[in-house]
Design a protein around this nucleic acid. Structure first.
Lengths: 320, 320
DNA sequence: TGCTACGATTGTAGCGCTACAAATCACATG
DNA sequence: CATGTGATTTGTAGCGCTACAATCGTAGCA
């Protein structure tokens, strides 16, 4: 910074102002300083700035994975909302609660302006760490009991709507795929809602298959086969994601089962593949970008702990 | 840090050492300090540490998108290699050269220990900015002329291998999908290699369709239709990615064209979907995790500018 | 006991920047 | 020409931490 100041014939403070508060500096001066800075390849040391000012314009996000596209829209929403407020988003991928804890420590070490978590199983000490950090936190796809501010749609209501739709279609032997362990709350609220609707319709809710994790098309095929072994007259399945549903449909094609004629297949998440598949997938559209938007708003507008509900939609297409 | 030191009855310097050089402090002392730190929720301020020490243990990566899974393995490789060296990876998504430039500035401002870029079109000033920054840079999927150290497989060789395979199968009217703009070098080296092999086999290389961008299944369908309009006797197409190839196969199914009987369809990238599809996709497997691994090695072992070649494989499956 | 050697611990100075207040400047007015 | 006003610029101090050198403690040995 000294260098830039010297070459531009101004004080270091003016250089600093050029970057942080452009309005405070005369147009002519600023342009000159910025040109010298560009010439020298000077980029302000954010660490020093943060240390001196006590605040940064970077938001940290921890994502559980990028294996599938479900977080793409969320991440885009985060970036869009952050950019609109002059902030940046840095992302860390963490595929286990331990990795998540370590990622949070790193981000806390960076003293980010806010931290966006994704609901799921967390390390036991995570909440305490974040409570004491004093940094705004939001838990996306979170519900009650979220760390910081929970932002997400009503998963239970979505699950009920989808189940009701299948029942209304006349489906009676409906298989439900439950995910244990993997995504925590993001999944765990679906099953009780499913049971509730089945019970209300006097149907059996016994066709529940609990799998440890299901991503990828392969698990869709395995799941379908497992269900058919247990109940050959199965007439619908509720999959945990569109990718799994796609895998199930592929397997139906292979077995010569017509969808939705013989079996209705419902997905979850409104992934790209669901629209292109033939038959196209009935699914829950979560408006993930809205979650990203609302998360940043909660972080930066300082709403504090609470619960922000975003929308969802039951997307009726061909498969169910 | 003062707080922790006071409560643990040691000097601030000892607290600092506990985190940075655990070996320098006695076991007993370290445990005591770490317990107090955990109690207080203390996380060292990395900015201050970086400022004082002049080096951080964070690697910055800029990814062009997370819309599809192609970067998943790469990112996992980065993280694995970084973790093995006691480093962390933070990621920024940038969907245009301008966003990439801004992301690089942010990461440079953070004074990361190394910067992993992905080959593609860059902002004109990017190279100069990075040259002057003095921070190690690697360009993954890069080739000659890469910014910093290029790390990637031989895209031309892969394209030649795939083309030769189709020709050897007796395919004669082969369509090639070229991407303009989107991924830069990641795509642009494929077409010349394709032409070369077609020429060597005395076949027409006229069936080239240039599209601006192609991701998503939808574009696969569009592309197939466009080709069939231009050449109804088309007997093979080379798609820029497995997702596009999957879209093309869906469209073939819809039209009642048998794959690979009437048309061979080849993908690129060895995505998950290609394995599950029926027929399964012949594709180029890029060993993306190796690219990630080698990138971190180049960054941290200070190889400097150069070119690191990783492997690739021609994955022969049912579709071609 | 006195002295050395070596590991553990502790001050000191300063990393690059910004908040804040103070100083300077340009210019219009009495 | 003095004075006031508001825009622009500039010192000063200090953010939290670590490199480095200095100091302390203690065990080993003559």
């Amino acid at each position: 910074m000294q260098d830039v100041a010297r070459r531009a014939g101004v004080s270091p403070m003016t250089v600093s102002n050029c970057f942080r508060y452009p309005d405070r500096v005369q147009d002519k001066t600023r342009k000159a300083v910025l040109r010298v800075a560009a010439d020298l390849g000077y980029v302000p040391n954010m660490s020093a700035g943060l240390l001196a000012a006590g605040s940064s314009r970077v938001i940290g996000a921890v994502l559980p994975s990028m294996r599938n596209s479900s977080f793409f829209n969320y991440s885009a929403g985060l970036r869009r909302a952050a950019a609109a407020r002059g902030h940046e988003v840095i992302t860390m991928i963490a595929e286990s609660p331990e990795e998540e804890f370590s990622a949070v420590q790193t981000l806390l070490g960076l003293r980010v302006a806010g931290l966006a978590l994704v609901a799921g199983p967390h390390a036991p000490d995570l909440r305490r760490l974040l409570d004491r950090s004093g940094i705004p936190v939001a838990e996306s796809w979170g519900a009650e009991e979220a760390i910081g501010c929970g932002v997400g749609y009503d998963v239970g209501a979505a699950s009920r709507a989808l189940t009701r739709h299948l029942i209304a279609q006349g489906r009676r032997r409906i298989g439900f795929v439950d995910i244990s362990g993997g995504g925590g709350l993001r999944y765990s609220m679906r099953l009780p809602a499913f049971r509730q609707e089945m019970f209300a319709a006097h149907l059996s809710d016994a066709l529940v298959l609990t799998v440890h994790a299901a991503d990828g098309f392969g698990s869709g095929a395995r799941i379908l086969n497992e269900f058919l072994t247990r109940e050959p007259r199965l007439d619908a399945i509720l999959c945990p994601s569109d990718v799994v549903a796609a895998g199930a449909i592929f397997e139906c094609t292979r077995r010569g089962l017509s969808v939705p004629g013989e079996i209705a297949v419902a997905g979850w998440g409104d992934y790209d593949i669901g629209r292109q598949l033939s038959p196209s997938l009935t699914t829950i559209a979560p408006f993930s970008d809205e979650i990203g938007l609302a998360t940043v708003a909660a972080l930066l507008e300082g709403t504090g702990p609470g619960l922000i509900r975003t929308r969802f939609a039951l997307e009726l297409r061909e498969s169910a």
